[in-house]
Computed example of a mutant assay.
Amino acid sequence: MLRWTITFLIIAVIAAILGFGGIAGAAAGIAEILFYIFLVLFVLSLIFGRGRV
């Protein structure tokens, strides 16, 4: 999931440099959503993973 976040972030940066504002905004929005999903899943795995040890 983090790999997809980085991919969309790179697409957003390249699109912003080339002047494609709409595509850059959309890719940045997708990257942000994926990052937050990854962060929530990571924290949940830390919390529930500690109980099994």
Rank of each mutant, 00 (worst) to 15 (best):
A15N: 07
G19P: 05
L2P: 02
L18S: 13
G21W: 13
L41Y: 07
F20L: 15
T5H: 05
I6M: 09
A16C: 08
G51E: 14
L41Q: 12
L9K: 07
R52I: 13
G49K: 13
A28P: 00
A15F: 05
L39S: 04
G51H: 11
V13C: 06
F42N: 07
A28Q: 03
R50Q: 08
L41D: 09
F8N: 04
A31K: 04
G25T: 02
I37M: 13
I14A: 14
I30N: 01
I30K: 00
L44F: 08
I11P: 01
S45A: 13
F20C: 05
I17W: 08
L41M: 09
S45T: 13
F48R: 12
G51Y: 14
V43F: 10
E32M: 14
I14L: 12
V13K: 07
A15G: 02
I47V: 15
F35V: 03
G21K: 14
A31F: 00
A26F: 10
G29A: 10
M1F: 06
T7Y: 04
L18W: 07
R52E: 09
V13G: 04
I47N: 05
V53W: 12
I37G: 00
A15M: 07
G19A: 11
L44W: 06
A26C: 03
E32F: 14
I23H: 03
L46N: 12
I14K: 04
F42V: 08
I6Q: 08
I30S: 02
G25F: 06
L39M: 07
A12P: 01
I10L: 08
L2V: 11
I37T: 07
T5E: 08
L44C: 11
F35D: 01
I37V: 15
F8D: 02
R52C: 01
I33M: 05
I11L: 14
E32C: 13
A31Y: 03
A31D: 02
A16K: 13
L46A: 10
G21I: 09
V40C: 00
L2I: 15
R52W: 09
I10V: 13
M1H: 06
V53Q: 10
V43L: 13
E32I: 15
L44S: 06
A27W: 04
T7F: 06
V40H: 00
I11H: 00
G29K: 07
F8W: 07
L39G: 02
A27Q: 05
G19K: 10
L39T: 06
T7L: 11
I30R: 01
R52M: 09
L44H: 05
A28R: 02
T7I: 10
Y36Q: 07
M1R: 05
L34P: 00
F38T: 12
I10S: 08
V13S: 06
G51Q: 12
I30Q: 00
L9F: 03
S45C: 06
A24W: 02
A16N: 11
A31L: 05
I6P: 00
L46K: 15
F48M: 09
L9H: 04
Y36L: 15
G49W: 15
F48I: 12
A12H: 01
S45D: 13
I47C: 09
L46F: 15
T5Y: 01
Y36V: 13
L9I: 03
G22I: 15
A27I: 07
R3Y: 06
I11F: 11
I47L: 14
I30Y: 03
G19S: 09
R3H: 08
G19F: 08
V43H: 04
A28N: 02
R52G: 01
I10M: 05
I37R: 04
I17K: 12
